[in-house]
C-alpha cells in the first residue's frame, strides 16, 4: 500500500505530522533518498519503498546564526547543523536543548518532532529539530 504514496518532499513532511521519519529506498539500486524523490538520481528507477530512518546520528558541522531572516529573528542566536544518521544519510536542522558553547563536531544528537504542528501558511510543513542523544 505504502508504495502508492508519492515519493515527494511534501510526503516526507506529511509523514512527520504523523510522527514518522521516513526516506525513500530505491528498489533497484538500494539508495536511500532523503528527501524522497520520484526518480532515482543514481539508476533512474521509479520504484521505491518507504523506510524508517534512524533518529540518532552525529554532528558533522554547525554554525550559530546571529543574523536571521524575519521569521526566525525572535529565536536568534540559534544553532543549526548537518547530522549524519546511523545509516549514513545526512540531514540539516536546528539544534536545541544544549548550551550553544557546548556544541561540537561529533556530538551525538537525536531527532525530535517537537510539537510537529504544521505552519498555517504555505507550505504547511512542520519543523523537526535535533537535541542531545
Amino acid at each position: 500500500m505504502s508504495e502508492q504514496v508519492p515519493f515527494t518532499i511534501e510526503q516526507f513532511y506529511k509523514h512527520m505530522l504523523q510522527g514518522k521519519f521516513m526516506g525513500g529506498k530505491c528498489k533497484k539500486c538500494g539508495k536511500i533518498h532523503l528527501p524522497p524523490r520520484p526518480l532515482c538520481d543514481n539508476c533512474f528507477s521509479k520504484e521505491f519503498e518507504w523506510v524508517e530512518l534512524p533518529k540518532n546520528g552525529k554532528l558533522l558541522t554547525y554554525t550559530i546564526i546571529h543574523v536571521a531572516p524575519p521569521q526566525f529573528q525572535g529565536m536568534a542566536p540559534y544553532a543549526v547543523g548537518i547530522v549524519q544518521l546511523e545509516n549514513g544519510v545526512k540531514i540539516p536542522g536546528m539544534i536545541k536543548g544544549i548550551a550553544l558553547e557546548k556544541i561540537k563536531i561529533g556530538t551525538s544528537l537525536t531527532l525530535d518532532f517537537g510539537t510537529c504542528a504544521a505552519t498555517q501558511e504555505w507550505p504547511k510543513w512542520p519543523r523537526y529539530y535535533f537535541k542531545p542523544a
Partner: peptide
Amino acid sequence: PFEQWHGITFPGLFAL
C-alpha cells in the same frame, strides 16, 4: 525545503 525552512541563512551555509 531543508535549509531555508530550518533557519539556515546564506552566511550560515558558508559558516557550516
